[in-house]
Write a protein that binds this DNA or RNA. Structure first.
Lengths: 318, 318
DNA sequence: ATATATATACTCTAAATGAGTATTAATTGG
DNA sequence: CCAATTAATACTCATTTAGAGTATATATAT
């Protein structure tokens, strides 16, 4: 059929994740004044056979940085929300509508790159870090505001739906994987800055805002990664070649935003055969040195779904 | 930047799934002579706010058919594989490269539509149906051919990688979710027709071939659905409003391609509080009537991940 | 009354989970 | 050398969840 109207350009965005001193960090492009952005660039179909090869190419150029593990997340095509709408600056396209494909990439290589910096992902999602305590803002800010959001529903039926969503997202029984659901709810309830920006207004909100729909992509990335931890040995993409079991646990905790029970965590790791000891030991400032381990590639052959089933939240013994 | 080269058109494809007399079926467009295709159409950014609304629109037009539950699967942009390459007929685009976004849609409404028909998905993936027995073709055709595929690897390292993949996909311990991995392996090993077609040659292969990359999209859909069954109550999208527990079990079995243990299945359904009895009973040709149940929407509020964890393969007692 | 086709009730075992307590090992600062 | 510190390790125990059965009960068709 005709092509003029059906033509769009494709933007590729990547949430490039690493873990550094017990914080999950994401690579952002921080321009003067404007919001943080995920590295993104156009897909050039003339020069790339696949979307992923296009991604690797320009991420390499833009950040001088090789991607390791990558995974496609989602393709967003919304107009008017999260994406530069008609009247906006629209600087990423020559007028054509942009559809953005989000990717998750994991790396342990933490090189510097001009114009980019690593930032802890909990800057963007402060309500997602439950490692120390249930974040206070949930009770002080979020729940009251969501209560109002429920009350302001146009009718009783809509209110009931909203109530259900609030309960699933922030009610008892924290499900650490529902990162995207929670962000979407906060968006709709007008609790994040993007909501106002997309509506052409301005207003403050929770956490640090990002450009376009990038915070939504990041939320998708976190959710996906938190889920995948449980049945695929993806953490190891983020670890140094050798690490102590506690370092491994801290990395998992950082990503999941939860504390785990140490003994059970070790039991799990051991039973799954995920790691093998190198003979070496760590040299801590003080305290008993721990054995260094490495990932046992063999599991991939042996186990159908090797991963760290989590659960095992910590009790008293940390 | 410039736009001419970065411009593509977007094709939306949908694997629309239903269950009919214990068979999972998918809606295909079957043209004269050519391969079966998933319903697909272009995304028109001028008229649709989101990709999904575009999908609903033309699926409605093309199949006179309302989609219920939908879920985005994956965005494929490969050139030369699964997609009309440069030299091909390329009839879906006006020259621009096509990127295809695949969707999964579930429905219980089985209306007729011109030019389309419902076909059992195991026509396309005969090796995926383990309900009666382990499909004979695995031992008689697939494994011997894959053995050869391993032997033909360019070097020892590649051979080891191939061996691992073969083992994960078809070795002991069938993981019903690895539908896509298996299809990709068979593709690379030259065991499906698409492999030859994409190479410009012709050759026979296992299962029924589909147009372009549609079989890959369908494989993705099946994998996703099989996974989702376990932690979201998606089966109910495919059931009539009221059903017997055995009907429910048969539907799950059809989708998963496995037999389940009846008593344990019921125990699970009951414990999870997924259904509630209507007072009514089925009227079978013979045999004891079973109570009719309906989906209990309440679980969505109560349980974090309500689903049918499967496992519980059948033993003697079917 | 009998065969057929299910539905239901229970039982039993083995693993997996969740939450501890108790002990041991190594290092640093006095 | 001793005490304080920081972890690593070893075990225990109760509770759930899975997996695989056996045994019965209920309804209909012939």
């Amino acid at each position: 059929m005709s092509s003029k109207e059906t033509v769009v350009s494709i933007g590729l965005s990547a949430a490039i994740v690493a873990v550094e001193s017990e914080q999950p960090v994401v690579l952002v492009v921080a321009h003067d004044g404007s919001d943080d952005a995920l590295p993104f660039g156009p897909f050039d179909p003339a020069h790339h056979r696949t979307l992923e090869s296009g991604l690797r190419k320009w991420v390499g150029e833009q950040t001088r940085f090789d991607l390791g593990y990558t995974e496609q997340l989602y393709t967003f095509g919304d107009k008017g929300r999260h994406t530069p709408a008609g009247g906006d600056k629209g600087r990423q396209s020559g007028g054509a509508r942009v559809v953005s494909v989000g990717y998750l990439a994991l790396t342990r290589r933490v090189k510097e790159a001009p114009e980019t910096q690593w930032r802890g992902w909990y800057h963007y999602f402060p309500w997602e870090d439950w490692r120390d305590t249930r974040p206070a803002m949930i009770d002080s800010v979020i729940l009251p505001a969501l209560k109002k959001f429920v009350k302001d529903a146009p009718n009783a039926e809509a209110a009931e739906l909203r109530r259900e969503r609030v309960n699933v997202c922030f009610g008892e029984g924290w499900d650490e994987e529902r990162v995207l659901e929670r962000y979407e709810l906060l968006y709709e309830a007008g609790l994040v800055e993007e909501f106002y920006r997309d509506g052409g207004k301005s207003g403050a909100g929770l956490g640090t805002a990002m450009l376009f729909d990038h915070r939504r992509i990041l939320a998708t990335a976190i959710a996906r990664l938190r889920g995948k931890l449980k049945y695929r040995p993806v953490v190891f993409e983020l670890m140094a070649p050798a690490f102590t079991l506690l370092e491994l646990q801290r990395a998992v905790e950082a990503l999941a935003g939860l504390r785990l029970h140490k003994q059970n965590f070790r039991r799990l790791v051991a039973e799954q055969g995920l790691v093998e000891g190198t003979g070496k030991f760590s040299a801590p400032a003080r305290g008993r040195p721990a054995e260094m381990f490495r990932f046992r590639r063999g599991v991939l052959r042996e186990r159908p779904a090797p991963g760290l089933r989590l659960g095992s939240r910590r009790g008293k013994t940390s």
